[in-house]
Structures are given as structure tokens and as C-alpha cells.
């Protein structure tokens, strides 16, 4: 029990890490997790479990993480600030640690307006940076947020955070990452990279601040499954940057849906190969939510297999 996180071990060894992502079901069926976990088990060092992503009610990320661990796969459990106050978050984290969760990704969370309960309260007692700080203090100082001592075992998480190199103001993005690192982030998973040039410029700013030596940066990638999806990400997802040449490449694929999907995988593999060459990039985070079956193919084509 409680051996260090596999993800941490891979990153610390200097090997190029691979994480994937799994969206829990909108029902109580653990088999959905088991099936997806089987698809991902040989091609990722750890797999993110989302916490009601886009504010849609799904099986809890901690419960899903436990099911995933039963399948022998290591979860990166996501925790957002949208639905819980500091009492609930700390309580859930004690529970998660007790159940064997080793990696925690600290997020503010998508606004409830995007989801299927837009009339709900958004808690936002804290933001992602304050969440990182709180969990680091629980781990390193053995104190609850209120300052009271944690008597006995404190939760021991390998702490991660997200970063979006493509949001505005661009010149503040590396500085905001510095705040996350100072707060406690040990690894970072970025927003999906399609504009590699802009990502490289952000990485340069990150290196100028020396942050690549203080945390492991995993570039987020996803295969575009269709021209429509690529267009949707370009036009409708705030903070996403999908250059026209990506869409043009998909359009260049032969007509069948299968050809477009194949080209989507090729695009993803090419991006992995490019970001791999950027100094300070320690791995990739392959997010193929609802297309988990694409991940083994991408990992294989990108020469990322076998995993350690």
C-alpha cells in the first residue's frame, strides 16, 4: 500500500510520460469504467478520471477511480471547486487517499452553466490555485485549511494542475503557471495543443521562468474525430486554438468517415512528435473522451509503447 505514484516514478525517471483520460458514465454502471480501462491499460502510465466534466452529472471521480484501480490502472483523480466547499473537498480527499488514490489534478471546474443543471449553485469557495495550496499543506504540513493539525495519516498526493497556453492574456499564462507551481503543482497537463507554434512560444516563456525544472509538463493532445468536431473546437470552445491548416488536413482526407478519423489520428501523432522535441515537455496527455479506443493506436504510432 501507498507506494509512490507510478506516474511520478515514470516522470522522475526521465521517460516521456503518457496519460490518458476517461469520462465516467452518466449512470451507476461500473462496467463502463472497466471496459474503457481495459482499452487504456497498456498505453498510459496513469489515466485521468474527470470530475463531472462540463458540469454534467456523472459517476463520482473518486468512486470511478476505485473501479479503475480494481482493473490495475492508476487514476489521476480530478477534483474541482465547483461543487464542494472546503469542508467537502478535504473530506473527500481524506477518503480518496484512504482508498488508494495517489494522483490528484486540481481544477477550478467548468461553470455550471455549461452542464445539465444550469440552475445549480456554483460553490467556488476557492479556485484551483488555492486548492493546490490547501492540498499541499494537508500533505506537507499535515494541517487542514483552517490550520488544525491532521492527527494521524495525512493524504499523500502527487499534485497536478491544468494550464491553458492559448487563453488570454497570453503574456500572463506562464506567470500564472508559476503561481500554480508555487502553490504546489508538481505536474501540469495542458489544454489541447493544435497550434504547436504558440505552444512552443509558451514553453519558451515557461523555460525562461525555470518552471520546466520545477514541474513536469504534459502537453494535451486529442485526435479530431471529424471535421465538425475540429470546427466546433475552433469556434465554440473558449480557450481553444485550432488553426485552419488542421481543418484543411481533415478535409483533405478521402470522403469516408473512417478516412477522416485515420487522418485525425495522424494529426495527433504528428503533434506528439513535434511537442516531444520541445525542451521541457515531459510527456503527453492524450484526451480522447468517448473515443478511448483511439489511444492505443496513437501511442503505438507515436512510438510511445510499450509503457514502462
Amino acid at each position: 500500500m501507498n507506494s509512490a505514484s507510478n506516474l511520478k516514478k515514470v516522470l522522475a525517471s526521465g521517460q516521456f510520460a503518457v496519460t490518458a483520460e476517461l469520462g465516467p458514465p452518466k449512470n451507476a454502471d461500473a462496467e463502463v469504467i472497466r471496459t474503457k480501462a481495459k482499452l487504456l491499460s497498456d498505453c498510459a502510465d496513469a489515466v485521468n478520471i474527470t470530475d463531472c466534466q462540463t458540469a454534467i452529472v456523472r459517476m463520482s471521480s473518486i468512486a470511478s477511480s476505485v473501479v479503475m484501480m480494481q482493473e490495475g490502472l492508476e487514476p489521476v483523480t480530478q477534483m474541482t471547486c465547483r461543487d464542494r466547499n472546503r469542508i467537502a473537498i478535504q473530506s473527500d480527499l481524506l477518503g480518496a487517499a484512504a482508498l488508494g488514490v495517489k494522483n490528484l489534478l486540481c481544477l477550478t471546474g467548468d461553470h455550471q452553466q455549461f452542464g445539465n443543471h444550469p440552475n445549480s449553485t456554483g460553490v467556488f469557495d476557492m479556485d484551483s490555485i488555492q486548492l493546490l495550496q490547501m492540498v499541499r499543506m494537508m500533505r506537507d504540513e499535515k494541517v487542514f485549511q483552517c490550520g488544525e493539525e491532521i492527527k494521524g495519516k495525512a493524504p499523500d498526493f502527487f499534485l497536478g494542475a491544468a494550464a491553458n497556453p492559448f487563453a488570454d492574456p497570453f503574456e500572463f499564462r506562464a506567470l500564472r503557471l508559476a503561481k500554480k507551481v508555487a502553490a504546489g503543482a508538481q505536474f501540469i497537463q495542458t489544454q489541447l495543443v493544435y497550434n504547436v507554434e504558440k505552444f512552443a512560444a509558451w514553453m519558451k516563456a515557461v523555460r525562461d521562468l525555470g518552471l520546466h525544472e520545477k514541474c513536469y509538463i504534459l502537453a494535451g493532445v486529442t485526435p479530431p474525430k471529424s471535421i465538425g468536431m475540429a470546427r466546433y473546437m475552433k469556434n465554440n470552445v473558449p480557450g481553444m486554438d485550432v488553426p485552419d491548416h488542421v481543418i484543411a488536413r481533415l478535409k483533405g482526407a478521402k470522403d469516408s468517415k473512417k478516412d477522416v478519423q485515420k487522418e485525425g489520428i495522424n494529426i495527433c501523432v504528428d503533434i506528439i512528435n513535434m511537442v516531444k522535441e520541445i525542451e521541457g515537455v515531459a510527456g503527453v496527455h492524450i484526451m480522447a473522451i468517448e473515443w478511448e479506443s483511439a489511444v492505443p493506436e496513437i501511442a503505438k504510432q507515436a512510438g510511445l509503447l510499450p509503457r514502462p
Binding site: 477550478t108 461553470h111 479556485d127 484551483s128 490555485i129 488555492q130 491544468a162 494550464a163 491553458n164 487563453a167 488570454d168 492574456p169 500572463f172 500564472r176 503561481k179 489544454q191 473558449p238 480557450g239
Partner: peptide
Amino acid sequence: NGPCGGSQ
């Protein structure tokens, strides 16, 4: 500690 990743 903003802006979040959705500022565009």
C-alpha cells in the same frame, strides 16, 4: 487568482 483558461 484569475484569469482562468476560458478567457479569450
